Amino acid sequence: MSIFSFLFGGSGNTSDAIKVLDGENYKRAISKGKVQLVDVRTPREYGAGHIKNAKNIDFFQRSSFEAGFSKLEKGKPVYLYCQSGNRSLKAARRLVAMGFSEIYDLKGGYRAWSY
């Protein structure tokens, strides 16, 4: 375990499953076709603006969070974002615990999205 992983609560499995992409690479990845794109902000935040085709699954509503993600395919990549990148990273860790193995997080969140 690296010192970074130790300090920030990550494990080898988590860092292998979660990758943080900058806006350009994230945009390129989600534009390749049908992807599992999820906005983990609140419905109010989502309603104020979101990335096209993103599904809203609120991180703070634990039961609906788990129910929403249980409908997604664990073997396919999941692309997450929140407002700043903090919530989506926590959501990504939760998804690893739920059995997802390929998770992409938008660096800087929706706030940094300019596309």
Results as ranks from 00 to 15, higher is better:
Ile3Cys: 04
Phe4Glu: 11
Phe4Val: 02
Phe4His: 13
Ser5Asp: 13
Phe6Ala: 08
Phe6Cys: 06
Phe6Met: 09
Leu7Phe: 13
Gly10Asn: 14
Gly10Thr: 05
Ser11Met: 10
Gly12Val: 11
Asn13Ser: 09
Ser15Met: 11
Ser15Thr: 09
Ala17Glu: 09
Lys19Pro: 04
Val20Gln: 14
Val20Trp: 07
Val20Met: 10
Leu21Arg: 09
Asp22Gly: 12
Asp22Thr: 02
Gly23Phe: 00
Glu24Gly: 03
Asn25Lys: 12
Asn25Gln: 12
Asn25Arg: 14
Asn25Gly: 02
Lys27Phe: 05
Arg28Cys: 01
Ala29His: 08
Ser31Gln: 05
Lys32Ala: 03
Gly33Gln: 01
Gly33Ser: 00
Gly33Leu: 03
Lys34Met: 01
Val35Asp: 00
Gln36His: 05
Gln36Thr: 05
Gln36Trp: 02
Asp39Gly: 04
Asp39Ser: 06
Asp39Leu: 06
Val40Tyr: 00
Val40Asn: 04
Thr42His: 12
Pro43Val: 12
Pro43Gly: 13
Arg44Asn: 14
Tyr46Cys: 12
Gly47Gln: 10
Gly47His: 05
Ala48Leu: 14
Gly49Met: 08
His50Ile: 00
His50Leu: 00
His50Ala: 08
His50Lys: 10
Ile51Lys: 05
Ile51Leu: 06
Ala54Arg: 04
Asn56Ala: 07
Phe60Asn: 15
Phe60Lys: 15
Gln61Val: 07
Gln61Tyr: 05
Arg62Ser: 12
Arg62Ala: 14
Ser64Phe: 04
Ser64Ala: 14
Ser64Pro: 01
Phe65Thr: 02
Phe65Met: 01
Glu66Asp: 03
Ala67Gly: 02
Gly68Ala: 09
Phe69Asn: 04
Ser70Arg: 09
Lys71Val: 04
Leu72Thr: 03
Leu72Ser: 02
Glu73Gln: 06
Glu73Arg: 06
Pro77Leu: 05
Val78Met: 03
Tyr79Lys: 02
Tyr79Asn: 02
Tyr79Pro: 08
Leu80Asp: 03
Leu80Lys: 08
Cys82Met: 10
Ser84Leu: 12
Gly85Ala: 06
Gly85Met: 05
Gly85Asn: 13
Gly85Trp: 06
Asn86Gly: 13
Arg87Lys: 15
Lys90Ile: 03
Ala91Lys: 03
Ala91His: 11
Ala92Ile: 07
Arg93Trp: 11
Arg93Leu: 15
Arg94Ser: 15
Leu95Tyr: 07
Leu95Val: 09
Leu95Pro: 08
Val96Ala: 09
Val96Asn: 06
Ala97Tyr: 06
Ala97Ser: 13
Ala97Leu: 12
Ala97Ile: 03
Met98Asp: 07
Gly99Met: 13
Phe100Thr: 01
Ser101Ala: 10
Glu102His: 09
Glu102Pro: 05
Ile103Glu: 04
Tyr104Lys: 11
Asp105Lys: 05
Lys107Pro: 00
Lys107Val: 00
Tyr110Val: 01
Arg111Trp: 09
Arg111Ser: 15
Arg111Asp: 14
Arg111Val: 14
Ala112Ile: 03
Ala112Phe: 11
Ala112Arg: 15
Ser114Phe: 02
Ser114Asp: 13
Tyr115Pro: 03
